[in-house]
Design a protein around this nucleic acid. Structure first.
Lengths: 356, 356
DNA sequence: ACCGGGCTGGCAAGCGGTTGCCAAATGTTG
DNA sequence: CAACATTTGGCAACCGCTTGCCAGCCCGGT
C-alpha cells in the first residue's frame, strides 16, 4: 500500500491474500464469506486502518448515506431544535446531513436542491417556500418528506394545529375574552391557513368573535408592524402566527403604552427557545420541535429503506398549550386607553420602525 | 439514452456525435475543445437535461464540492447567524455544506468527522470541543479552519476578544463600577480563557478589581447557577462569558429580588438574536456572527483552491460593544440587600473553581 | 464410485466522470 | 514543398467499490 494514500480494498486484499471482491463482501455481505476468512480480513483491515470510501461505494450503488435538509431560514430560531432533532436521527442511522438554507427564497431553494439532489438519498423540506408543483416534482425523483405542510401524495409531518389553536382559544375564552384577533403570517405558509381556519371553527363553537389581520412577515419586525394594524380595531386578545411575531407585537404594544397581559393578552405559536426568556414570558402553543425534525428524518430513512410511503395521512405530532405570562383575565370595565388615544402620527412611526 | 435514468456524458456524446471525453472537456476544460464543438455539445446537453454527476466526478478527482461545518451545539442560538453566513459563502461558491452537530461532545464530534472526512474537501470547526491534538490531526488530513479558537499551525478566525472585553470594562468603569466579576464559561473554551485574561489586563490598566467565578455551562441554566455563586461575593458589575449565561444570570438575580441594572449591571458576549428581546435588553459585546461564518468558509475555500494557509496569524474580526439596558450607573450608597446576607464560606470555593 | 447441490472465492464488468497520451488535421516556416 | 508546431478529438486507463456469474471444492445420497 502506498504511503500517504488511504488504504483501499485492494491493499487489504493483498495483505490478506484474497481477492478484492472478497474484502468487499466481508464487510457488506455477512454470511456470503466464510466466517474465518471474514474475520481475518477484518483483522488485516483494522491493522491497515482501512476505511471504506463512501464516494466509491455510492457510485455503483447510489447509496451515499446523505440526506438533504432544507430550511427556509437557518437564522430563524424556529429551526434550531428541529435541526437538532434531524441531525440526531441522521447521525444515529449513520447518515450525514446536507443543510441547505433557502434564505426565504423559493428560487434559491430550487438551485440548492438542483445541486444537492444527485448527492443525497432523500430530502426533507422543512417550511419550504416552493410551490406545491415544484415539491411534487422533487418528490418524484427522490424520497421526500415535507415538514409543516400537507401536500397530497407527498409524505408529511405536521403538528396538530387545529387542536393547538383550539386549546389557545379555550384558554382565552376561559379568561373572559370574547373577541380574538389572529395576526397572520405569510400567505405561502400552509400552517397559517390551517391555524386561521382552526381559529374560526373554534370561535364558532366557543362563541367567540374572531377576525384576522395581515399577512405580515413571520418575524419580530412583522409582529411589530401588526401592532399598528391592531390598534385600528383593538381586541383584548390576540393570537399570533408564531412566537417571533408575538414577541414583536408585545414589544410594539408595550412601546405604545399598552400593557401585556393586563390590557391585551397575546398567544404565540411554536414555543421557540426565546419565548420563555422574554418579558412577559410568552403563552404559546408548543410544537415538539425536536421530535418534528427527528420523525421527519426517521420517516425519510424508512422510505429510503424501502418502506411504503404511507402517503395517505400526514403524520401529526401533538401540540400543547404552554401558559405563561402573556395572557391574563380580561379587564371588563373599559377599553384599553392606549388604543383609544392612538393617533395617526404615532402609529405611523411605530410602523416605520418595524420595517427593515 | 435510457428513459428513467439521468443522462450521462455518454448519452450526450452519442447525441452530439463526439466522444465522451470531449463532452467532459467541453464542460471542464474551456479552451481545450473547439469553441463551436463545445457550444454544440452544450446545446445537446441542455436539451437532454444533462447534469454532471458530482459523485462520479469526485471519485477520480477528489473534488466533491462539499465542506463539513461542525458546531458544538446546533440548538445554541449563537450558531444561527454563523451557520447562515457559512451557508451563504458555500452556496455562492457552488459548494454544499454538511452540517454536523457535536452535541457538546468531543467524542461525538470525532465520530461525525470520521464519517464525513472522506466526503468533504475541507472542514470548518466552529467552537470545537476536541482537544488541540485531535484538531491538528484533522488539519493534517484535510484543509481545516477553526472558528473561535486559536491553535498554532491551524488557520483560524476569531473575534477581537481583548478589544471587546476592554470596551466592556471601560464602559463599566465609566458607569462608576469598581469591582467586576467575570462569570466563566466552559474550561475547554478557548474564548473563555482569552476573555478572562483580557479582563484582568483591562482591570490593571483601568484600576478596576476583577475576579472570576465558574466555570459554568454556557447556557441559561449555567448563568442561573452562577447567580448563587455570585451572591457570596457580590459586585455591582458582572461580565458573563456569553449572552445566554448573562440572560440566565439576570433572570436568577431578578428572581432573588436583585434588580438589573439598578443594583447589578450585567454585560454579555456575542450579541445573539435574543439579547435585544429580553428585559432588560442586554448590553453585550457584539460579534460579527454572520461574517465569522462567512470568512471561515471563505478562507477554507481559498485553501482548497490552493492558497497558502497563512497559518501565521489568526484572522481577527472586530468586536463592538452594544450598550442596552442591562448596565447602569453604580448606586454608591449601599450594597444590594440580597447580596448583603452572604457569608464567607462560599467565597473560597469560588476562588478555587476559578483557578486554571 | 457417481452425481447434484450448497459453500466459497475469484473474475470482470460496470458506476460516470477525468485525463495522459496519441494521432489526425491544420497551420506555420524556411 | 518538406519539416515542424499547434489544435482538436478519441482511446483507454484509471478512481474504489459492488455484484452477477462461474468454477472449484466438499458433502451426502444412491
Amino acid at each position: 500500500m502506498a504511503e500517504g494514500r488511504a488504504p483501499t480494498i485492494y491493499d487489504v486484499a493483498k495483505a490478506a491474500g484474497v481477492a478484492a471482491s472478497t474484502v468487499s463482501r466481508a464487510f457488506a455481505r455477512p454470511g456470503r464469506v466464510n466466517a474465518e476468512t471474514a474475520e481475518r480480513i477484518r483483522q488485516v483491515a483494522a491493522e491497515l486502518g482501512y476505511r471504506a470510501n463512501p464516494l466509491a461505494r455510492a457510485l455503483p450503488t447510489g447509496r451515499t448515506s446523505m440526506i438533504a435538509f432544507v430550511v427556509a431560514d437557518v437564522s430563524n430560531p424556529f429551526h434550531n431544535e428541529i435541526i437538532r432533532g434531524a441531525q440526531t436521527a441522521c447521525a444515529d442511522a449513520g447518515y450525514s446531513m446536507l443543510l441547505a438554507d433557502a434564505q426565504e427564497s423559493g428560487l434559491r431553494e430550487r438551485e440548492l436542491l438542483d445541486r444537492a439532489m444527485s448527492t443525497v438519498e432523500g430530502i426533507v423540506l422543512a417550511t419550504s417556500r416552493m410551490p406545491d408543483s415544484a415539491i411534487r416534482m422533487i418528490a418524484k425523483q427522490k424520497p421526500t418528506v415535507v415538514l409543516n405542510r400537507v401536500l397530497g401524495d407527498v409524505p408529511s409531518v405536521v403538528t396538530d394545529n387545529p387542536r393547538g389553536m383550539r386549546r389557545a382559544a379555550e384558554h382565552l375564552g376561559e379568561l373572559g375574552h370574547e373577541r380574538i384577533t389572529y395576526v397572520a403570517g405569510p400567505e405561502a405558509s400552509w400552517a397559517d391557513g390551517t391555524r386561521w381556519r382552526a381559529l374560526r371553527e373554534a370561535g364558532l363553537e366557543l362563541e367567540l368573535q374572531v377576525r384576522r389581520v395581515g399577512p405580515f412577515e413571520p418575524t419580530v419586525a412583522g409582529g411589530a408592524r401588526a401592532a399598528a394594524e391592531l390598534g385600528r380595531h383593538p381586541t383584548s386578545a390576540v393570537i399570533a402566527y408564531n412566537d417571533l411575531m408575538a414577541i414583536g407585537l408585545i414589544q410594539a404594544l408595550t412601546t405604545r403604552g399598552v400593557r401585556v397581559p393586563h390590557e391585551v393578552s397575546v398567544v404565540g405559536f411554536d414555543n421557540i427557545f426565546v419565548s420563555e426568556l422574554v418579558t412577559p414570558a410568552l403563552t404559546t402553543v408548543a410544537a415538539p420541535l425536536n421530535a418534528m425534525g427527528h420523525t421527519a428524518v426517521g420517516n425519510l430513512l424508512a422510505m429510503i429503506r424501502g418502506a411504503t410511503p404511507r402517503t395517505a395521512e400526514p403524520v401529526t405530532l401533538p401540540s400543547l398549550l404552554v401558559v405563561r405570562g402573556s395572557t391574563a383575565h380580561r379587564r371588563r370595565n373599559r377599553t384599553s386607553p392606549a388604543f383609544g388615544t392612538t393617533n395617526a402620527a404615532g402609529s405611523a412611526r411605530s410602523t416605520d420602525a418595524g420595517s427593515r
